[in-house]
């Protein structure tokens, strides 16, 4: 175990970097972070669109949600890898392919969380905001979403943690993220699969656990403000 780590730790962390492209755990973190940062605004937009008063907006988005939700992520990755280049006529790299697949897939799941958060808030807040003359979007931005997002936080974190784990599917299209690197190491060492994959598991656990704790910290900081009370 000791010489396994001594030999391969740098390869595990950054892949062939700086002699080759960035890979390993660093690439996984980068991919997951970008996916979260891009999927969240997309999820907000899609979630709000799902509740739009205009059918022309609501229906296509609802269709997208149902299609993506009814498909495994692996499928979405394949589409992005094989199908997207024929559509755009432009070959995207493995990293961008995986990023696109993750953003679309997670955006859709986040959209459903956002929708549930907005619906769960009840009609009263939206009605009060609208009766003051605010537009639908002003009401969403200043009144509904600030409250709904706080209620959504646990579900959002759940989805974010999934995203980190989902980056491992990049393995399938040869993206040198940490699972791919671990497999490479395992092929080279050959005799220590348990140790190699234990390290891989620990790496994912640390990332996911770290994010959960961070979110928990944000959540309890938000609680200092008095929680909304249901009027008697």
């Amino acid at each position: 175990m000791r010489d396994l780590i001594d030999t391969y730790w740098l390869y595990f962390l950054v892949g062939q970097y700086p002699k080759g492209p960035l890979g390993g755990l660093a690439l996984t973190v980068l991919l997951a972070a970008l996916a979260l940062l891009l999927a969240m605004p997309l999820g907000l937009a899609l979630g709000v669109a799902r509740l739009s008063l205009w059918r022309a907006v609501r229906w296509p988005v609802t269709a997208l949600v149902f299609v993506v939700r009814g498909t495994p992520l692996l499928m979405v990755v394949f589409w992005a890898y094989f199908f997207l280049p024929t559509l755009t006529g432009y070959k995207t790299g493995q990293f961008s392919t995986m990023l696109i697949a993750l953003v679309v897939f997670d955006g859709v799941y986040l959209a459903e969380i956002v929708r549930a958060g907005i619906v769960g808030l009840g009609r009263g807040q939206m009605e009060a905001a609208r009766s003051l003359g605010l537009t639908h979007f002003q009401a969403l931005r200043s009144v509904v979403l600030p409250q709904a997002l706080r209620h959504m936080l646990p579900s959002l974190v759940n989805q974010f943690v999934s995203t980190i784990k989902e980056t491992s599917l990049g393995y399938i299209i040869g993206l040198s993220e940490v699972s791919f690197i671990a497999t490479q190491i395992n092929t080279q060492v050959f005799t220590k699969p348990a140790q190699v994959y234990l390290c891989l598991g620990v790496a994912y656990f640390v990332l996911c656990f770290g994010l959960s704790r961070l979110a928990y910290g944000i959540e309890s900081r938000g609680k200092r403000r008095p929680p909304p009370r249901v009027p008697a």
């Binding site: 009766s131 003359g133 600030p146 706080r150 009370r229």
Partner: peptide
């Protein structure tokens, strides 16, 4: 409709204050 509503005060049974 927004201009209309902004000139009418409406008070709800359940108050509907913005809790945040």
């Amino acid at each position: 409709v927004n201009a209309l509503r902004s000139r009418i005060g409406f008070v709800f049974q359940q108050f509907n204050l913005f809790p945040h």
